[in-house]
């Protein structure tokens, strides 16, 4: 899957195809860009403009009036200052980091464990693995609402189950101590299929004879996992984690549907905050909303660069 991609493209040595002479190389160069032209045009058309607009929104002082009239004065980094000074900033940053890293850690660990488990061919393993992907097919509004249903303080199935084993009910969505945990649990659930698919395909690429050699050496199952599976899976793991990070930073719908970022700000992340500023209020604040959105992109960029560095070191 995606793992090869990122690893290969920046790092690979050009294995040349019909590029023996300089002229041919130049020709190839132009042909290559002809092949790439649609995608480049596409990128410029569809990514550059939204990005530019979002940047523009975040650098002007927009009221609803000036948003419509288009005469908002340039205000430099004022929106960013507003956002930094907002009492929501600290908690939102913390929640974003906790949400992202805890989600990824569990998604990855569970996804890997399941991938290893399903890689041992047993009866029904292929079918069950396919069924694991079903949560991916549901519209988020439905899966998130289902979680809201199950975690309801009073009539939720989870609290009913807890009661059966004589544990005090938990106010999953309405207690400031639990709201973030609840949305993380739901997000982990949604992320497991992706991790399972990518890591499973990574496992498939590990040759069986390595294991056979290890078996002859008398390695236990656990040793095999740590000494062979895990190291050989490292590049796949890296890209899984990076993609997971990108997708998790962006998550807002699950949280928005389950808790609206509440109670108070107990489960607000940058993504939900940005949405609330721009759309979740009767009076939209597009400027600060866009500023928060851009901070998210910067965070994602940071981790992207970190990944590239990791990649270089590996090479």
């Amino acid at each position: 899957m995606a793992h090869d991609v990122m690893t290969r493209v920046p790092a690979s040595a050009p294995a040349d195809v019909g590029a023996r002479s300089p002229r041919r190389r130049k020709g190839r160069h132009w042909t290559a860009w002809a092949f790439l032209a649609p995608v480049v045009v596409y990128l410029v058309a569809f990514y550059a403009y939204p990005l530019y607009r979002n940047l523009d929104l975040s650098l002007r002082h927009y009221t609803v009036r000036s948003f419509v009239q288009g005469d908002a004065p340039f205000s430099g980094l004022d929106n960013y200052r507003t956002v930094f000074a907002d009492p929501t900033f600290g908690p939102a940053l913390l929640h974003t980091l906790v949400f992202t890293f805890v989600s990824i850690a569990f998604q990855f660990a569970i996804g890997l464990a399941l991938a290893v488990f399903f890689a041992q061919n047993f009866r029904l393993s292929a079918t069950l693995r396919a069924l694991f992907l079903v949560p991916w097919l549901l519209p988020l509004i439905v899966s998130a609402s289902t979680w809201t249903w199950m975690l309801n303080s009073d009539s939720g199935i989870v609290n009913t189950a807890l009661e059966l084993i004589h544990v005090d009910p938990v106010n999953w969505l309405t207690s400031p101590d639990w709201a973030l945990t609840s949305v993380i649990i739901a997000n982990i659930w949604i992320g497991i299929p992706f991790n399972l698919v990518v890591l499973y395909s990574g496992l498939q690429a590990i040759p069986a004879d390595v294991y056979e050699a290890a078996a002859i050496d008398g390695a236990t199952g656990w040793q095999r996992f740590w000494r062979i599976t895990f190291p050989l899976l490292r590049p796949v793991s890296a890209i899984t984690l990076l993609l997971g990070l990108v997708y998790t930073l962006k998550v807002f719908d699950i949280i928005w549907i389950m808790t609206k970022g509440g109670p108070a700000d107990a489960s607000t992340t940058f993504a939900t905050w940005s949405y609330r500023l721009s759309f979740g209020n009767l009076l939209p604040e597009f400027g600060p909303g866009a500023a928060v959105g851009n901070l998210l992109i910067i965070m994602a960029l940071f981790f992207g660069l970190l990944y590239i560095r990791f990649q270089r070191r590996q090479a």
């Binding site: 309801n152 303080s153 009073d154 009539s155 106010n171 309405t174 808790t259």
Partner: peptide
């Protein structure tokens, strides 16, 4: 009043 009011929409509260 139930604790769930904190997360109730008007529809949810009606269902209750």
């Amino acid at each position: 009043a139930p604790n769930s009011v904190l997360n109730n929409t008007q529809t949810t509260s009606w269902q209750e």
